[in-house]
Structures are given as structure tokens and as C-alpha cells.
Amino acid sequence: MSTAAIPAGTKWWNGGRSPFNTSYGKVMMWYFLMSDAFTFGAFLISYGTIRFSQNYWVDPNHVFNSFPFAGHTNLPLAFVSLMTFILIFSSVTMVLAVHEGHKMNRKAVEKYMLMTIIGGIAFLSCQAWEWTHLLTGQHEVLVNGHLEYWNTTVSHNPFGPEVMFNGREVATPGPIAFGSYFFEITGFHGFHVFSGVIINIVMYIKTKLGHFDQRGHYEMIEKAGLYWHFVDLVWVFVFLCFYLI
């Protein structure tokens, strides 16, 4: 084994140098995100498996067609597009914060971190509204020959196939798995958004206290940024699997 001359006290990765010209923390953040991608991937694929095994699945445009303060107006895809744009925009402000961090511009980092936090809170509020709407919204459904009013929960799905009943079309109970998967996956994603907001708030406070200026670099903002962008990345796929197809 050749032993290159390494200055005493150097402990870079303990092997003498960073193999990827990147800091240990950032590399490990990437590997964490990769494993998280597999968790989300497994959830979404399991949802796909169940969906493929059913003869009937719920039409998302029929379930997600409302907008706050719009009453019963039929607006498919409208609310979820708003949520998507909120998240994309908060991703932009995050990457701008990282950019300003590279230039050691504390004031700008503070501004963009604050905008990112507000974007995250706005997204969570939208999700809270949507969950409430699903969990409390009553829909007519034909159960064992008589009409009932059901909410959408993990055990009830009022968006099944329609049958003729007393001369008009009435929905029957749909696959239960719809509610379970919807609340499980958007809930797990929402939890990631929530923890992302917490991380961003911590970073904002640390920026304001000047910790990163003392340290000489804003790499923590970059790592928090990686996590935040990942949340946006997952939403792109949740958006696809639950709302678009």
C-alpha cells in the first residue's frame, strides 16, 4: 500500500481525500434522498399494482373538482395545479437562496428562505383544505339497495361505478384502496413538506444569527435545499399518479 504524504490532522473521509470532490454531508444527503425515493417509489408502485388489479378505478377529475370558495362549480385539476405551482415556485426561491449563499449574501439568503417557508406553508394549507374537503364532503351512494351519504375516508369510497336506480344514475361504493392510498401517500408527502418547512425555519434562524457567516460558507442552505427540492420532485410524481392519470 502506497501512503501518500497527508498533513497531520487531516481526516477527510479518513481516506485522504473526498472521492467526489463533494463534502461528506452533501453526499450523505443525496444517499438519504435516494433511499427516500425508493420508499416513495414503493408506495406509488404498490398503489399502481392495486389499481391495475381492479376492473374499476376512480376518475380523479370527478373526485378532485372543487376549489375553495367556489361552491359546487366543476373545476377539475384547478386546485391541484395551484398546489403544483406553489411548490415549483418555492423550489425556485430555494435555489435562489442557495445561489445567494454561494455569494455569501446574507440578506438575500434570508429573503429567499423566508419566501420558501411561506411557499411551504401555503402548500400545506392547500393540502389541509383538500383533506378536509374529502373527509367531510358527503356524496350520495347506493349501498345494499338504499341510498346513503358517504365521506371519502380510508374505509369508504363513494366514487364507484354508476348504476341505474329509480330512473337515474347513482354511484355505488368504489374500491376502498383509493382513499387508503390517497391519504397514505399524500400524507407521507405532506409530512415531508412539514419537516422541510421546519428545517427551512431552522436554517432561516441560523442565517439571521450569522452562523453561516462565521463558518465561512452556506453549505447547510444547500443541504436543506436538496431536501426541499426532493419534496418538489416527489410531488411531481404524486401529481402524475393521483391527479393526472
Partner: peptide
């Protein structure tokens, strides 16, 4: 349709 039991008792 496994969940559409009431279809038999429609009309």
C-alpha cells in the same frame, strides 16, 4: 365489479 353488489337490486 366486486364492490357493485347493489347492481342486482336496482330498478
Amino acid at each position: 365489479e366486486q364492490h357493485a353488489a347493489p347492481a342486482a337490486v336496482e330498478q
